[in-house]
Design a protein around this nucleic acid. Structure first.
Lengths: 221, 221
DNA sequence: TAGTGGCTTTATGTATACACTGAGATGGTT
DNA sequence: AACCATCTCAGTGTATACATAAAGCCACTA
């Protein structure tokens, strides 16, 4: 594996996991030393992260991890809705029906108990996304979706998972998969719309709650 | 201006104009020498072009200008429809109405005579796009649209402009601008849908025509 | 004559040295 | 004491030297 790939992957993981918080300054010499690569591959990694929108040049001399506020989440979901509704429609047109029927079945039987259940669920969603990309068969759309998903990892981290919301999310995914398997483009698009509406509402509620909590904590401290 | 920016801009122009044709091999040393920069900034430029999707690593040792075939054009327009319909809806929600009314008026009075008329028309479309981006106020959506527009430059070049199609295109843009100015999101989205449908049909017809012609030329040669 | 093995060559990937710019500090002046 | 100019320095931008690996070619063998 190339040094620039390792640097990119490491920084990506750290930004997505929050280890590198928004606003963190990424000096080239500092990060290169920390990751054990020279400045050349590190600069390439920073360039890719900048293209992803995860870092930005604040001034001419300092690049920082980009911030994610509530407005960003709303904007991200506007784009996500445009892309995923289109993807659902296109997938319904030409999808491998048995594959999506099988995914729908897996969503129907998904077990969300404990951390292993959650991990299995996220893995299932990843497989669903991959199958969706394959069914859509559009590199431009898939590429745009990849960027959205990259940002979504950070957004999900901001919002804490709520058990009842997760159960609803499973049911929503099951409907989307069923609709695609049944070649019902309108239903697939509407179900996606509904899912994203609910997902956004849950995230915003969670973020607002955390926001109020953190204010309370500040007051108590 | 940085050397890497100049290299990127030059290569971008050459790829978009067709000077660097699809399939052209871009060796680092060769291009660096040609553009008068060292390999370091040239590699950065190639990285940005790769992120744009204009070049790709064919094998481990050779980067080439990506190809654009008819299927690519269809796929690009699927994404474009998703993004621009959404953009039109969002712009209708919060646009600077007088600005779009003024744009609609300019489209109504557009003169397409000769090359200066065409250049003025393309400049007007660029202003329309900029005003649309401002009205949408969504960096994620705007960024995705930027990528689409980057590819569209090459697609437009493949298709030769047809005078009657251009006149229709002006009328379609006028309607979109009017709908946004009137805050009619449904009409703006539908007008955008119609416009993109017609634009794609014209491009495909032109490309097919050119394809047949080039076959004929081959047969004659 | 065809195929294989190794060598050579050439390109990329990486490290490092140099250049230059912009920000901050320090000292002088008003 | 406050403000401005200059100097220093840190950090980025660029060039180049070195490491490495893949592709082509030639020779040798079956």
């Amino acid at each position: 594996m190339r040094a620039s790939d390792r640097a990119y992957q490491t920084l990506l993981d750290e930004i997505q996991s929050g280890t590198l918080a928004p606003g963190a300054v990424l000096g080239e010499v500092e990060q290169a030393a920390r990751l054990g690569v020279s400045r050349t591959p590190l600069r390439e990694a920073l360039g890719r992260l900048a293209a992803d929108g995860l870092v930005a040049q604040q001034s001419a001399r300092v690049t920082v991890v980009t911030d994610v506020d509530v407005d960003d989440i709303r904007e991200l979901f506007e784009l996500r809705r445009a892309l995923e509704e289109t993807a659902a429609r296109l997938a319904a047109r030409s999808a491998d029906a048995p594959a999506f029927a099988a995914l729908a079945d897996e969503f129907a039987r998904a077990d969300l108990e404990g951390r292993p259940g959650m991990d299995a669920y996220y893995a299932l969603i990843a497989r669903f996304d991959a199958e969706l990309d394959a069914a859509v068969g559009n590199v431009y759309l898939t590429s745009a979706l990849r960027t959205v998903r990259t940002h979504l990892v950070r957004v999900r981290r901001l919002a804490r998972d709520n058990p009842s919301r997760l159960a609803a999310s499973v049911a929503e995914h099951r409907l989307i998969a069923s609709a695609i398997a049944a070649r019902d483009a309108d239903l697939a698009a509407s179900a996606t719309h509904v899912h994203l509406h609910n997902a956004l509402a849950a995230i915003l509620a969670s973020v607002q709650g955390a926001h109020i909590e953190s204010h309370t904590e500040q007051g108590a401290a």
